[in-house]
Design a protein around this nucleic acid. Structure first.
Lengths: 114, 114
DNA sequence: TTTTATCGTTTCGGAGCCGTTTCATTCTGG
DNA sequence: CCAGAATGAAACGGCTCCGAAACGATAAAA
């Protein structure tokens, strides 16, 4: 349960992954965007704008705009909640799954090299 | 040599650390800025603007501006190279050391919880 | 039904980051 | 000594992000 990571190796891993993200062709996601994306994929639905804003500790417009950006990239999608049409439900996409699979592979591979 | 990290744990770790960065009071650093900061602290000096730009795969003005931003935060500092006054040498600061120590502690602690 | 509350979006003004191009300073080789 | 190369910074235009406040749509309460 849990992985032991010395301070030096933690920094090296953080450096290597970020460097990989910079050098890659993938579009750059902000810290808030990647955290939002991971939250939707790691936690159980449903995900509303309000809930996501609270979980991330940011304002609702930040979520709305991040959903705009991530939606354009097909990494997430929105749907109206028919049970309560005030709500918007945030859902996963195939491209989002593939994106995070690549990210997980990268982190895992670089951790092994540390 | 190296740490084994399953895909699920890699994503959870990436999520947790980014969430911690968002929620913290620390000023948000861009991916390029944090990578630059880590490069200076992990690799041996001297560090010139040109070398750092090449290592990160970005243009020189990106480095110049990142140094402006990180300099305002006292995380890095500039000094003229007296041997070749065209060069600027990027150097570490006490605040930068402390900042990265905190980051390393955070990554290590959250990795243990994964 | 009418009023109140909730939800997500839009608007507004401000700030930061980006790449390209241009520039001043400094060094180097003929 | 002087023309050319190298270095980092500044200027320019474009894009994105941010929080606060105002807004319409929907639901719940009175």
């Amino acid at each position: 349960m849990g992985v032991t990571l010395s301070p030096a190796k933690a920094l090296q891993l953080w450096h290597d992954v970020n460097l990989h993200l910079i050098r890659g062709d993938e579009p750059d996601l902000s810290t808030r965007q990647i955290t939002l994306l991971l939250t939707v994929y790691l936690e159980a639905p449903p995900h509303t704008v309000r809930d996501l804003a609270a979980k991330l500790g940011v304002s609702k417009p930040v979520i709305t705009r991040a959903l705009d950006s991530l939606g354009k990239l097909d990494l997430l999608t929105r749907r109206r909640d028919e049970a309560d049409r005030r709500n918007v439900l945030v859902q996963r996409t195939v491209k989002g799954v593939l994106y995070l699979e690549r990210l997980a592979e990268t982190v895992g591979r670089l951790a092994k090299q540390v």
